[in-house]
Protein backbone atom coordinates (compact mmCIF):
# COMPACT_ATOMS: atom_id res chain seq x y z
CA UNK A 1 0.00 0.00 0.00
CA UNK A 2 1.26 3.51 -0.82
CA UNK A 3 0.07 7.03 -0.13
CA UNK A 4 -0.30 9.71 -2.79
CA UNK A 5 -1.43 13.16 -1.78
CA UNK A 6 -2.87 11.74 1.41
CA UNK A 7 -4.80 9.00 -0.37
CA UNK A 8 -4.11 5.32 0.16
CA UNK A 9 -3.59 3.76 -3.23
CA UNK A 10 -2.34 0.51 -4.64
CA UNK A 11 1.29 0.18 -5.64
CA UNK A 12 0.24 -0.02 -9.27
CA UNK A 13 -1.75 3.20 -9.03
CA UNK A 14 1.11 4.88 -7.20
CA UNK A 15 3.54 3.95 -9.97
CA UNK A 16 1.08 5.23 -12.57
CA UNK A 17 0.78 8.55 -10.78
CA UNK A 18 4.55 8.91 -10.52
CA UNK A 19 4.85 8.20 -14.23
CA UNK A 20 2.24 10.85 -14.81
CA UNK A 21 4.31 13.37 -12.88
CA UNK A 22 7.13 12.77 -15.33
CA UNK A 23 4.81 12.94 -18.29
CA UNK A 24 3.36 16.32 -17.43
CA UNK A 25 6.80 17.88 -17.44
CA UNK A 26 6.31 17.75 -21.19
CA UNK A 27 2.79 19.07 -20.98
CA UNK A 28 3.69 22.16 -22.98
CA UNK A 29 3.86 19.92 -26.01
CA UNK A 30 0.25 19.03 -25.42
CA UNK A 31 -1.03 22.59 -25.09
CA UNK A 32 -1.65 22.97 -28.74
CA UNK A 33 -4.22 25.44 -29.90
CA UNK A 34 -4.05 24.12 -33.43
CA UNK A 35 -4.69 20.43 -33.90
CA UNK A 36 -3.93 19.00 -37.30
CA UNK A 37 -5.26 15.66 -38.42
CA UNK A 38 -2.21 15.01 -40.59
CA UNK A 39 -0.22 14.53 -37.41
CA UNK A 40 -2.93 12.29 -35.94
CA UNK A 41 -2.97 14.68 -33.00
CA UNK A 42 -5.20 13.91 -30.03
CA UNK A 43 -8.68 15.39 -29.80
CA UNK A 44 -10.65 15.80 -26.60
CA UNK A 45 -13.72 13.64 -26.84
CA UNK A 46 -16.82 12.79 -24.83
CA UNK A 47 -17.04 9.01 -24.88
CA UNK A 48 -20.09 7.28 -23.43
CA UNK A 49 -19.55 4.51 -20.92
CA UNK A 50 -20.49 1.02 -22.07
CA UNK A 51 -23.95 1.21 -20.48
CA UNK A 52 -24.43 4.78 -21.74
CA UNK A 53 -25.47 6.03 -18.33
CA UNK A 54 -22.47 8.34 -18.10
CA UNK A 55 -19.47 9.44 -20.12
CA UNK A 56 -15.74 9.92 -19.86
CA UNK A 57 -13.69 12.72 -21.31
CA UNK A 58 -10.82 11.14 -23.15
CA UNK A 59 -8.48 11.93 -25.97
CA UNK A 60 -8.56 10.05 -29.23
CA UNK A 61 -6.20 9.84 -32.14
CA UNK A 62 -7.57 11.81 -35.06
CA UNK A 63 -7.89 9.80 -38.27
CA UNK A 64 -9.97 6.69 -37.94
CA UNK A 65 -8.28 3.29 -38.18
CA UNK A 66 -10.43 0.24 -38.91
CA UNK A 67 -9.74 -2.97 -37.06
CA UNK A 68 -8.21 -4.72 -40.07
CA UNK A 69 -5.26 -2.32 -40.10
CA UNK A 70 -2.60 -4.57 -38.60
CA UNK A 71 0.11 -2.37 -37.16
CA UNK A 72 1.60 1.14 -37.16
CA UNK A 73 3.41 0.58 -40.45
CA UNK A 74 0.18 -0.51 -42.06
CA UNK A 75 -1.62 2.40 -40.39
CA UNK A 76 0.78 4.88 -41.94
CA UNK A 77 0.21 3.42 -45.40
CA UNK A 78 -3.52 3.28 -44.81
CA UNK A 79 -3.69 6.93 -43.79
CA UNK A 80 -1.71 7.97 -46.84
CA UNK A 81 -4.14 6.13 -49.04
CA UNK A 82 -7.44 6.97 -47.36
CA UNK A 83 -8.75 10.16 -45.84
CA UNK A 84 -10.33 8.98 -42.61
CA UNK A 85 -10.13 12.16 -40.60
CA UNK A 86 -13.65 12.94 -41.81
CA UNK A 87 -16.68 10.72 -42.30
CA UNK A 88 -19.51 11.93 -44.50
CA UNK A 89 -22.71 11.92 -42.49
CA UNK A 90 -24.77 10.93 -45.51
CA UNK A 91 -22.65 7.81 -46.07
CA UNK A 92 -21.97 6.57 -42.55
CA UNK A 93 -24.31 3.62 -42.66
CA UNK A 94 -23.95 2.56 -46.25
CA UNK A 95 -23.72 -1.05 -47.28
CA UNK A 96 -22.26 -1.67 -50.73
CA UNK A 97 -23.91 -3.68 -53.52
CA UNK A 98 -22.14 -6.84 -52.34
CA UNK A 99 -23.63 -6.45 -48.89
CA UNK A 100 -20.35 -5.34 -47.37
CA UNK A 101 -20.52 -2.66 -44.71
CA UNK A 102 -18.68 0.58 -45.36
CA UNK A 103 -15.84 1.44 -43.02
CA UNK A 104 -17.68 3.72 -40.61
CA UNK A 105 -20.94 1.79 -40.33
CA UNK A 106 -20.12 -0.30 -37.26
CA UNK A 107 -18.78 2.75 -35.42
CA UNK A 108 -21.79 4.83 -36.41
CA UNK A 109 -23.98 2.18 -34.83
CA UNK A 110 -21.85 1.42 -31.79
CA UNK A 111 -19.13 4.05 -31.43
CA UNK A 112 -20.71 7.46 -31.53
CA UNK A 113 -19.01 10.20 -29.54
CA UNK A 114 -18.57 13.98 -29.42
CA UNK A 115 -15.52 16.05 -30.21
CA UNK A 116 -15.20 19.04 -27.88
CA UNK A 117 -14.02 22.06 -29.79
CA UNK A 118 -14.04 25.83 -29.60
CA UNK A 119 -13.35 26.50 -33.28
CA UNK A 120 -12.35 24.93 -36.52
CA UNK A 121 -10.24 26.16 -39.39
CA UNK A 122 -10.92 26.16 -43.09
CA UNK A 123 -9.41 27.63 -46.24
CA UNK A 124 -11.33 29.81 -48.68
CA UNK A 125 -10.20 29.60 -52.29
CA UNK A 126 -10.14 32.79 -54.33
CA UNK A 127 -9.29 32.62 -58.01
CA UNK A 128 -7.61 35.69 -59.46
CA UNK A 129 -8.34 36.53 -63.10
CA UNK A 130 -5.84 36.16 -65.87
CA UNK A 131 -5.28 39.77 -66.92
CA UNK A 132 -5.06 38.86 -70.61
CA UNK A 133 -7.89 36.33 -70.96
CA UNK A 134 -10.09 37.35 -68.04
CA UNK A 135 -10.40 33.71 -67.04
CA UNK A 136 -9.74 32.34 -63.59
CA UNK A 137 -6.16 31.33 -62.86
CA UNK A 138 -5.77 27.60 -62.32
CA UNK A 139 -4.33 27.88 -58.84
CA UNK A 140 -6.39 29.70 -56.23
CA UNK A 141 -5.10 31.97 -53.50
CA UNK A 142 -6.04 30.44 -50.18
CA UNK A 143 -7.20 32.41 -47.15
CA UNK A 144 -7.57 30.75 -43.75
CA UNK A 145 -10.58 31.27 -41.50
CA UNK A 146 -11.45 30.28 -37.99
CA UNK A 147 -15.06 29.39 -37.53
CA UNK A 148 -16.81 29.44 -34.21
CA UNK A 149 -20.28 29.16 -32.75
CA UNK A 150 -21.56 32.47 -31.46
CA UNK A 151 -21.66 32.89 -27.70
CA UNK A 152 -20.35 29.40 -27.12
CA UNK A 153 -16.93 28.91 -25.53
CA UNK A 154 -17.01 25.39 -26.94
CA UNK A 155 -19.32 23.16 -28.89
CA UNK A 156 -19.83 19.54 -29.90
CA UNK A 157 -19.08 17.86 -33.19
CA UNK A 158 -20.40 14.40 -33.98
CA UNK A 159 -17.67 11.78 -34.10
CA UNK A 160 -17.36 8.05 -34.69
CA UNK A 161 -14.53 6.06 -33.14
CA UNK A 162 -12.95 2.67 -33.31
CA UNK A 163 -10.85 1.11 -30.61
CA UNK A 164 -7.83 0.00 -32.60
CA UNK A 165 -5.14 -2.48 -31.59
CA UNK A 166 -1.68 -2.81 -33.11
CA UNK A 167 -1.48 -6.54 -33.59
CA UNK A 168 2.32 -6.53 -33.30
CA UNK A 169 2.76 -4.51 -30.13
CA UNK A 170 -0.62 -4.70 -28.44
CA UNK A 171 -0.87 -0.91 -28.40
CA UNK A 172 -4.51 0.01 -27.99
CA UNK A 173 -5.92 3.38 -28.87
CA UNK A 174 -9.25 4.97 -29.78
CA UNK A 175 -9.14 6.49 -33.26
CA UNK A 176 -11.76 8.93 -34.43
CA UNK A 177 -13.31 10.42 -37.55
CA UNK A 178 -15.18 13.70 -37.48
CA UNK A 179 -18.63 13.55 -39.04
CA UNK A 180 -19.27 16.13 -41.74
CA UNK A 181 -22.35 17.45 -43.46
CA UNK A 182 -23.24 19.78 -46.30
CA UNK A 183 -22.01 23.28 -45.60
CA UNK A 184 -24.51 25.92 -44.56
CA UNK A 185 -24.52 29.32 -46.25
CA UNK A 186 -21.60 30.71 -44.28
CA UNK A 187 -19.47 27.55 -44.24
CA UNK A 188 -20.00 27.14 -47.99
CA UNK A 189 -18.57 30.59 -48.61
CA UNK A 190 -15.49 29.74 -46.56
CA UNK A 191 -14.89 26.14 -47.57
CA UNK A 192 -15.87 26.93 -51.13
CA UNK A 193 -13.75 24.15 -52.62
CA UNK A 194 -15.75 21.32 -51.03
CA UNK A 195 -18.73 22.96 -49.37
CA UNK A 196 -18.65 20.73 -46.34
CA UNK A 197 -18.63 21.49 -42.62
CA UNK A 198 -18.40 19.55 -39.37
CA UNK A 199 -21.65 18.22 -37.99
CA UNK A 200 -21.95 20.62 -35.07
CA UNK A 201 -24.75 19.55 -32.77
CA UNK A 202 -26.72 21.66 -30.29
CA UNK A 203 -26.61 20.31 -26.75
CA UNK A 204 -29.81 18.28 -26.90
CA UNK A 205 -28.90 16.62 -30.20
CA UNK A 206 -25.34 16.05 -29.02
CA UNK A 207 -26.62 14.17 -26.02
CA UNK A 208 -28.94 12.14 -28.20
CA UNK A 209 -26.12 11.34 -30.65
CA UNK A 210 -23.72 10.06 -28.03
CA UNK A 211 -25.87 8.67 -25.25
CA UNK A 212 -29.01 7.21 -26.74
CA UNK A 213 -29.84 4.14 -28.77
CA UNK A 214 -30.90 5.37 -32.18
CA UNK A 215 -32.48 3.98 -35.29
CA UNK A 216 -30.44 4.08 -38.46
CA UNK A 217 -32.74 6.74 -39.79
CA UNK A 218 -32.16 8.93 -36.75
CA UNK A 219 -28.39 8.39 -36.91
CA UNK A 220 -28.36 9.72 -40.45
CA UNK A 221 -30.64 12.60 -39.51
CA UNK A 222 -28.27 13.69 -36.77
CA UNK A 223 -25.13 12.98 -38.78
CA UNK A 224 -26.34 15.31 -41.51
CA UNK A 225 -27.63 18.02 -39.18
CA UNK A 226 -26.62 21.44 -40.42
CA UNK A 227 -26.13 24.10 -37.80
CA UNK A 228 -27.85 27.31 -38.99
CA UNK A 229 -25.36 29.80 -40.37
CA UNK A 230 -26.77 32.56 -38.19
CA UNK A 231 -25.25 30.80 -35.19
CA UNK A 232 -21.76 30.77 -36.62
CA UNK A 233 -19.10 33.36 -37.16
CA UNK A 234 -16.06 33.20 -39.45
CA UNK A 235 -12.97 35.39 -39.24
CA UNK A 236 -9.86 35.56 -41.37
CA UNK A 237 -6.65 34.62 -39.58
CA UNK A 238 -2.93 34.64 -40.28
CA UNK A 239 -1.89 32.39 -43.15
CA UNK A 240 0.93 30.66 -41.30
CA UNK A 241 -1.15 29.68 -38.32
CA UNK A 242 -0.23 26.03 -38.73
CA UNK A 243 3.48 26.72 -38.50
CA UNK A 244 3.34 27.38 -34.81
CA UNK A 245 0.78 25.07 -33.28
CA UNK A 246 1.56 26.25 -29.77
CA UNK A 247 0.11 29.68 -30.46
CA UNK A 248 -3.42 30.69 -31.26
CA UNK A 249 -3.98 32.13 -34.71
CA UNK A 250 -4.57 35.87 -34.76
CA UNK A 251 -7.12 37.83 -36.76
CA UNK A 252 -5.91 39.30 -40.03
CA UNK A 253 -7.81 41.43 -42.50
CA UNK A 254 -7.24 40.74 -46.20
CA UNK A 255 -8.42 43.85 -48.06
CA UNK A 256 -8.14 42.09 -51.43
CA UNK A 257 -11.02 39.72 -50.65
CA UNK A 258 -14.66 40.36 -50.14
CA UNK A 259 -15.71 40.19 -46.52
CA UNK A 260 -18.24 37.58 -45.53
CA UNK A 261 -21.57 38.78 -44.32
CA UNK A 262 -21.59 37.20 -40.91
CA UNK A 263 -22.17 39.79 -38.25
CA UNK A 264 -21.37 38.14 -34.96
CA UNK A 265 -20.99 39.00 -31.37
CA UNK A 266 -17.82 37.03 -30.95
CA UNK A 267 -15.20 38.58 -28.71
CA UNK A 268 -11.76 37.08 -29.51
CA UNK A 269 -10.30 37.90 -26.13
CA UNK A 270 -12.68 35.46 -24.47
CA UNK A 271 -11.30 32.62 -26.52
CA UNK A 272 -7.60 33.29 -26.06
CA UNK A 273 -7.24 30.86 -23.24
CA UNK A 274 -3.94 29.20 -24.14
Amino acid sequence: MCVYNGQRVTKVEFIELKKLEKAIKDIDALKRPVVNAIECAPLAVIKPTADKTNFDIVTMEWSFLPTNVRNRTHAKEFRKKYDTENAKGEELLLIDEKGKEKMFRRSALEGRCLIISDRYYEWRHIYRKNKRTGENLKTPDKYPYQIMVKDRPYFYIAGVYNNWTDQDTGENVDTIAMVTTAANELAAKVHNSKERMPTILPDDLAWEWAMQDLTEQRITQLATYQLPHELMVAETINKKFQKNPTELPYLVSYPEIEKLDNPGLFKPAQMALF
Partner: peptide, 18 residues
Protein backbone atom coordinates in the same frame (compact mmCIF):
# COMPACT_ATOMS: atom_id res chain seq x y z
CA UNK B 1 -8.01 21.12 -37.67
CA UNK B 2 -9.28 21.83 -34.24
CA UNK B 3 -8.54 23.69 -31.15
CA UNK B 4 -10.18 21.50 -28.65
CA UNK B 5 -11.42 21.40 -25.17
CA UNK B 6 -11.54 24.57 -23.13
CA UNK B 7 -14.23 25.39 -20.66
CA UNK B 8 -14.69 27.41 -17.51
CA UNK B 9 -15.87 26.69 -14.01
CA UNK B 10 -16.48 29.09 -11.18
CA UNK B 11 -14.94 28.30 -7.83
CA UNK B 12 -14.97 30.68 -4.90
CA UNK B 13 -16.22 33.44 -7.18
CA UNK B 14 -13.24 33.03 -9.50
CA UNK B 15 -13.69 31.94 -13.09
CA UNK B 16 -11.11 29.26 -13.89
CA UNK B 17 -10.09 28.20 -17.39
CA UNK B 18 -9.90 24.44 -17.70
Amino acid sequence: MFNADVFQVTVAQQVLDI
